[in-house]
Structures are given as structure tokens and as C-alpha cells.
């Protein structure tokens, strides 16, 4: 018989005490264990979507369009939309994981109730789940990067920075997505999310420059997170880096912090009331 070991008491002090136990790792490991066994096919399908867009629009339409102007330089059309599709793929990976998967775990598998019956706090769970969504975003980003590199669509060495940038994008969407999911009661509610994502995907200067819009509409597009992701990654893969990249980073920084705070307080309201 093994000598019994008591669970270590969480040592977190300060304002996070009671909501964080410093054991996010166990949540992530559980997710990876499940992903390795059951979900990898789903992960794979998410990778192909942007590749098909790239082939049909970038290569196909690109032959008709030629080049597009981006910060004063002419960029081949395929190289113009490839970074945008990378941002979209990071967004999709993060959003699917933090909405559909989280919804299932929350309402059917009762996974979070289980986790919150242990010494884990809601912030451990929220961070862990978001990191898992991020991991998926990372897989998509790396896979897509490989494809665009082989196709010669990365115009500068700074393109390698597109991978961490895609992670930042995924982090922002995942932390917000999970908070939004916590309000959903039925699977139909998830459709609202996809209904919003579709126009954002098509209109956030993904396939054409933002200058085609009238000034007022440009402001609306620039308020949306995907535009910041697209412009940031496009600056990196084309090497046409502007000071505005800092604004994009700041935008996602705020989104991540707000999303985490929001998710944690929602988990607390739902499971620790």
C-alpha cells in the first residue's frame, strides 16, 4: 500500500487567491490526452479550410487580379491574402474550440464541475481551456505557414513572427469566445457566433484592401478584432512593418485580459455561486 499523500495546499496569495491554484497544467494535460486520442481528425479538417481558400482565391483569382497595393508596395494577390487566411485560421481554431468544445464540456460532460470539485480554481480552468484552444491555433498556424512557405508566399524573413502573432490572435479570440459561450443555453445559440464570424471573415480586409470602403465603414471594420489580426500578420509576412503593429498588439492585449477576466468571473458565477 502506497503511503498516502495529502494534496498540496494552493499557495497563491493576493487577489487571485480562491480563484487560482497555479495548476493550469493539469487542465492542459487532460485536454491534450483527449485530443491525442479522439480529436485529431477534427483538428486536421480545420487545417485544410484555409488551404483550399488559398488555392481557389489566391492562385485562381490571383491570376486575374495580379497585384494589390499594401503600404505602398505591390504585393502578388496570393501573397496578399495568405496572411489574412492565416489570421482567419487562428481565429477559427480558437473560436471553434472555445465555443463548440467548451459548450459541450460545460453543459453535457459537466467537466468544469468536476474540475472545480478539486483544488483547482476557475482561473486555472479558464486558462487551461484557452491554452488548449491556442494550441490548436498554433497547429493550424504552423501547418498553414508550411504551405505558404512552400508556395513562396512569404516575402520577408519577418514572416516567422507570423506564428507568434497568430497565437496572439488565437489567444484573444479564445479568451473572449469562452466567456461568450458561458451565456449559451442551447446549441442554436452557437449559430449566432458563426453568423457573426462569417461577415467578419469576408469583410475584414481579408480579400481586398480596406481602402475600398468609405471612411465611416473603415472605422467599423477597424473596430473589429479580425482586421487587427489580418493587418498585423500581413505586415509580418510581407515585411512591410508599420508602427501600427503596436496598436494591433495592444488591441489583442486588451482583448486577452478582458476575456480572461470575463471568463473567470463567468465560471465563478456558474459553478461557484
Amino acid at each position: 500500500m502506497t503511503e498516502l499523500m495529502q494534496a498540496p495546499a494552493p499557495t497563491i496569495r493576493g487577489p487571485l487567491r480562491g480563484i487560482y491554484a497555479g495548476n493550469t497544467r493539469s487542465v492542459v494535460m487532460r485536454g491534450l490526452q483527449v485530443m491525442a486520442r479522439t480529436n485529431w481528425v477534427v483538428v486536421l479538417t480545420g487545417f485544410f479550410e484555409p488551404v483550399f481558400y488559398l488555392l481557389s482565391m489566391g492562385v485562381g483569382l490571383g491570376a486575374l487580379i495580379g497585384t494589390v497595393e499594401f503600404y505602398g508596395a505591390d504585393v502578388p494577390y496570393a501573397a496578399y491574402i495568405a496572411p489574412a487566411l492565416m489570421a482567419v485560421s487562428a481565429m477559427n481554431g480558437a473560436v471553434y474550440d472555445s465555443t463548440m468544445n467548451v459548450f459541450f464540456k460545460m453543459n453535457f460532460a459537466k467537466l468544469y464541475q468536476q474540475m472545480l470539485s478539486t483544488s483547482l480554481g476557475p482561473l486555472d480552468v479558464a486558462l487551461g481551456e484557452i491554452l488548449l484552444a491556442l494550441f490548436r491555433g498554433l497547429l493550424y498556424a504552423c501547418g498553414f505557414m508550411l504551405v505558404t512557405t512552400l508556395m513562396g508566399l512569404n516575402l520577408s524573413w519577418t514572416a516567422v513572427l507570423a506564428i507568434p502573432a497568430a497565437l496572439v490572435v488565437a489567444f484573444g479570440f479564445a479568451s473572449f469566445g469562452m466567456a461568450v459561450t458561458s451565456y449559451m443555453k442551447t446549441f442554436q445559440h452557437l449559430d449566432y457566433v458563426y453568423f457573426l464570424m462569417m461577415p467578419m471573415f469576408l469583410l475584414s480586409a481579408t480579400f481586398f484592401p480596406i481602402e475600398v470602403y468609405p471612411a465611416g465603414l473603415q472605422w467599423v471594420i477597424q473596430a473589429l478584432p479580425l482586421w487587427h489580426g489580418v493587418d498585423m500578420i500581413r505586415q509580418l509576412t510581407t515585411g512591410l512593418i508599420q508602427p501600427s503593429i503596436l496598436i494591433h498588439l495592444l488591441y489583442f492585449g486588451v482583448m486577452i485580459v478582458l476575456g480572461l477576466w470575463f471568463t473567470t468571473s463567468r465560471l465563478r458565477a456558474l459553478f461557484l455561486r
Binding site: 495546499a9 480562491g18 487532460r30 490526452q33 486520442r37 459537466k110 467537466l111 470539485s117
Partner: peptide, 23 residues
């Protein structure tokens, strides 16, 4: 104030079993 500290020393058996069916 001390949810995680308390739960670290408790064994909880909820009414519905709530097992992890993916494992």
C-alpha cells in the same frame, strides 16, 4: 475565502456521477 485550500482536503462525491467520459 479559501475554496481551493478546502477542496484540496475534501473528497467530493456529487449526486450525479460526473465522470470524465472522454477518459
Amino acid at each position: 475565502e479559501h475554496g481551493p485550500e478546502i477542496r484540496a482536503q475534501l473528497g467530493i462525491v456529487p449526486q450525479a456521477d460526473q465522470l470524465d467520459e472522454e477518459l
